[in-house]
Design a protein around this nucleic acid. Sequence first.
DNA 1: CAGTATCCATCTTGATACTG
DNA 2: CAGTATCAAGATGGATACTG
Lengths: 132, 132
Amino acid sequence: MPTRDAAQRREDAAQAYDAYLASCPARQLVDRISDKWVTLVISALADGPQRYSDLSRRIAGVSQKMLTQTLRSLERDGLVSRQVTPSVPVRVDYELTPLGLTLMPLILHIKAWAECHMDKVATARQTYDATK
Amino acid sequence: MPTRDAAQRREDAAQAYDAYLASCPARQLVDRISDKWVTLVISALADGPQRYSDLSRRIAGVSQKMLTQTLRSLERDGLVSRQVTPSVPVRVDYELTPLGLTLMPLILHIKAWAECHMDKVATARQTYDATK
DNA sequence: CAGTATCCATCTTGATACTG
DNA sequence: CAGTATCAAGATGGATACTG
């Protein structure tokens, strides 16, 4: 009789994996930019500081909840800064931080790859779907 | 009375946004690499062809369902090829396609950025959480 | 203007069991 | 070995209503 059954081993593997995930910086970044709205917000802010209402207009289709949530998480990660002007009505501007700016080229590279190769991906999909 | 109420306008915006999403190649790519397992599978395959069982062992914590699902989607996108050897028991090897290989440098860049800057992100998170 | 709070549908994920 | 099928649970996101 083994000291560990299959379920136990699987649990161990899952825990080891979680630890790996938690310590893997690339994984964390991917989790970050993989958010549905993060890249859109960063792209929008690439043109300079924007007000909350500007962002919600530029990123059509985003709900207040998601926009706020995305901005909060980016602010928490130090990628975006938030500045409140206590006028009436209140005005809030968002801006990429220096750290956020270093992430920009990365997103541009992704865009460039996509623009070069996504047509091939689309073709591959059609071929695959037709074959299936 | 306006010809469109607020709900109507929001719906229009959402549809326009969907159309934008559907036609935006960068968006599609982000959707692709943002998958929880895609980057891990591609990283694993960076070292060369791997069998299904090898992959499931290297990417500890992935369920059969998710591994299969991820491999299928990558195959569909033309990023990974699947080769079946009809022996007994059957053997299946997965390998990056030329297209998949062009995606590699991108992922390496992401890794490089992460390794350089994620400590700052971690610090920013701690500061934010402490302030809050 | 710039949010917060709540509810609810849906999508995703994983555990489990079974198969050629 | 390399899957497929099914079901339950948690995460996700959007609609809606309200506020300093």
